[in-house]
C-alpha cells in the first residue's frame, strides 16, 4: 500500500464528508438561533436577508482562493484530507508547513520526496500533526469567549463613551498593524489597498446620490474584485 492509497482511501472520503456535514449542521444551528434572536431584537427580516445575501456574495471570491489551495495541497496530501482541513480551521500555508515538519523529521529533503518515497504509515503522522497543532484557538475559546464577552459588555455599560472607544481599539490595532505592512510590501500591494478604498467610496457615493440602496449588499464584493483585477493589470504594467 502506497502513500496515496491511504491519502485517497474511500474510508477517508466517508469520514471527511461526515465531518463536513457536522460543520455545516453546526453553522446552521448558529444561523437559526441568531436569526431568531435578531428578529426578537427588532431587526427586520428584510435587513437580515440583505445581511445574509451580502455575506454569501462576499464569501465567494475568498473561497475560490481556498479552492486553489485545495488544488495545491491535493498534489502532496491527496484529495479528502485537504478538503477537510480547508473546510475547518486549516490553511494552505499551515498544512504545508506541518507536512514539511513531518518530512524533515523523517529525514526527507522535501514533502514531495516524502510522498514519492515514503510508505502509507507516514500519512498517519501527517494527519495527527496537522490536527493537533492548530487546536489551541478552539480549546482556549471553550474557556475564554464568554468571560471576555461579558467583560467587554460590562466595560461598555460602566464606562460609557470610553467603553465604546475601547471596543473600537481592537479594530484600530488591526489597522495599525496591517496598513504599514501592506505599504511596506510593495507598490502593487499599496495600490490594491488604495483602489479598494476608492471603489468602496465610489459605491457609497453612488448609493447616496442615486438612492441605490441595493448596492449596499455588494460594496465589499465589488471593491474586492475590482481591486484584485487592478492588481493583475498593475503587476503586468510594472513588469
Amino acid at each position: 500500500m502506497g502513500y496515496f492509497d491511504a491519502a485517497n482511501a474511500p474510508l477517508l472520503y466517508f469520514l471527511v464528508a461526515a465531518g463536513i456535514a457536522y460543520i455545516v449542521g453546526l453553522s446552521a444551528v448558529f444561523l437559526c438561533k441568531s436569526w431568531k434572536r435578531c428578529l426578537e431584537l427588532g431587526i427586520s427580516g428584510a435587513k437580515l436577508r440583505s445581511v445574509a445575501r451580502s455575506s454569501a456574495v462576499f464569501t465567494i471570491v475568498p473561497s475560490v482562493s481556498v479552492v486553489i489551495g485545495l488544488f495545491t495541497l491535493s498534489t502532496v496530501l491527496g484529495v479528502p484530507w485537504p478538503w477537510y482541513r480547508l473546510s475547518v480551521v486549516g490553511s494552505v500555508s499551515y498544512e504545508l508547513m506541518a507536512a514539511d515538519m513531518v518530512a524533515s523529521g523523517m529525514g526527507y529533503s522535501s514533502v514531495s520526496e516524502m510522498t514519492a518515497c515514503a510508505d502509507y504509515t507516514v500519512f498517519g503522522a501527517v494527519m495527527f500533526v496537522m490536527s493537533m497543532c492548530i487546536l489551541a484557538g478552539i480549546v482556549i475559546n471553550i474557556f475564554a469567549v464568554e468571560k471576555i464577552q461579558n467583560g467587554m459588555n460590562t466595560l461598555k455599560k460602566k464606562q460609557g463613551d470610553w467603553g465604546t472607544i475601547v471596543n473600537s481599539c481592537f479594530f484600530l490595532g488591526i489597522v495599525a498593524a496591517f496598513t504599514p505592512l501592506i505599504f511596506a510590501s510593495g507598490t502593487v500591494y499599496a495600490a490594491a489597498f488604495l483602489v479598494s478604498m476608492g471603489v468602496a467610496a465610489l459605491c457609497v457615493l453612488c448609493m447616496r446620490r442615486f438612492r441605490l440602496n441595493w448596492l449596499g449588499s455588494f460594496v465589499l464584493s465589488i471593491s474586492l474584485i475590482v481591486s484584485m483585477a487592478a492588481s493583475v493589470l498593475l503587476e503586468r504594467l510594472l513588469q
Binding site: 446552521a28 441568531s34 437580515l48 445574509a52 451580502s54 455575506s55 454569501a56 473561497s63 479552492v67
Partner: peptide
C-alpha cells in the same frame, strides 16, 4: 446576533464552494 448570522452564512457558503471544488 448579526455577526453570528454573517459568520454562519459565510461558513456554509465556503464549505459548499470547497465541496464543489472537490
Amino acid at each position: 446576533a448579526v455577526a453570528t448570522v454573517a459568520v454562519a452564512v459565510s461558513s456554509i457558503v465556503t464549505t459548499l464552494i470547497v465541496a464543489l471544488g472537490v
